Simulated assay, not measured.
Amino acid sequence: MDVIVNGHKTFCYTGGKPFDPAKPTAVFIHGVLNDHSVWILQTRYLAHHGWNVLAIDLPGHGKSAGEPPATVEDAARFVIALLDAAQVGQAALVGHSFGSLIALEAAAQAPARVTHLALVGTAFPMKVSPALLEASLHQPLQAIDMVNTFSHSMLAPPPSMLGPGTWLYGGSRALMRRVLASNRRVNVFHAGFKACDSYTDGEAAMEKVRCPVLFVLGTGDQMTPPRAAQPLIDRARQSRVVRLAAGHQLMGEAPDGVLFALRDFLAG
């Protein structure tokens, strides 16, 4: 499904079901150098169980046009504009990593429009090492290999994700290379990392959030260790924390755990 946002086409994966404004809506926001496909299992389930899902490609990523967001705040304003363009009054926001900061900031900018906030693999501050920032700019393919080493705690996902024989490292690396190549004008890898590293308003944003907040954290996450989410957990008004045996790419390593956490949270 394509939605025109700020004059540009935004691709939204709907889980194989037509969008129905009468149903509750959940917007899924990916992390740095990812796209909508990282949410395949979770979005398909919700789409077949009473929800609209809009799993987006951020502007300038994958199948979406427009200028890639330079800051978390810019990306949050885009998400709110997407709700306007899709004529969605209120929605649940689900974000992973960089996407979790975007979802958090959008919920702070427009608290009355967000019914649930789910932060997967989150941290604040979400600092990026200078070496990785530099590599993402000047040696992005090498940086992709570095990120994949730190983002996974296992080689193959459970069968519920993509089936036997799937190689998590290889699939994730191929996705990141594809998203990087989708924008020849802007290095969206470096832009995303810089936006994460520069975001300073996470605690203040959480204090503005009115809705329940779910934290889904990986006990083996080296990119955003569970303890790094504590400043946000401490400031959330209504929080629920789920810890899963997984690394940073929880949707692939613990697909059922992420799905069940979201399903139960959104049912509340």
Rank of each mutant, 00 (worst) to 15 (best):
L41I: 04
A65K: 12
V128D: 11
G220M: 14
S64Y: 07
Y13W: 11
V114A: 05
P159R: 10
A70V: 02
I102V: 05
D201Q: 04
V216S: 07
R178Q: 11
Q90D: 15
A131V: 10
V38Q: 04
V79N: 07
Q249N: 13
L33R: 12
V186F: 04
T43S: 06
P68N: 02
A26V: 00
F260T: 15
A261W: 13
A103G: 03
Y169G: 13
V5F: 04
P59K: 01
L46E: 06
K17P: 14
L155N: 15
S136V: 09
S37P: 02
I29M: 00
A65R: 08
D197F: 10
S37K: 00
D57I: 01
T71I: 00
V179W: 06
S151R: 07
G165N: 07
T10D: 02
A204S: 08
S64N: 00
A204N: 03
S198P: 07
D201T: 02
Q109L: 00
L132W: 10
S64F: 09
S198L: 07
A106E: 01
A135H: 13
L101S: 03
T224S: 09
L93R: 01
A22K: 15
G257N: 12
D197Y: 10
D256R: 04
P111M: 05
F28V: 00
N6A: 11
M251C: 11
A85T: 02
D264R: 04
S151N: 13
A181H: 11
G247L: 07
V120E: 09
G165I: 10
V79P: 05
G60L: 04
L104Y: 06
P158L: 03
L217H: 08
H152D: 13
E73P: 02
R237C: 14
V241E: 12
Y199K: 01
E67C: 08
S97G: 01
H152N: 13
H48T: 10
V216D: 06
V258L: 11
A55K: 00
I80M: 02
T71N: 00
A191T: 08
Q249S: 13
L262P: 08
Q222L: 14
K208F: 09
P140F: 13
L117M: 05
V188M: 04
S160N: 05
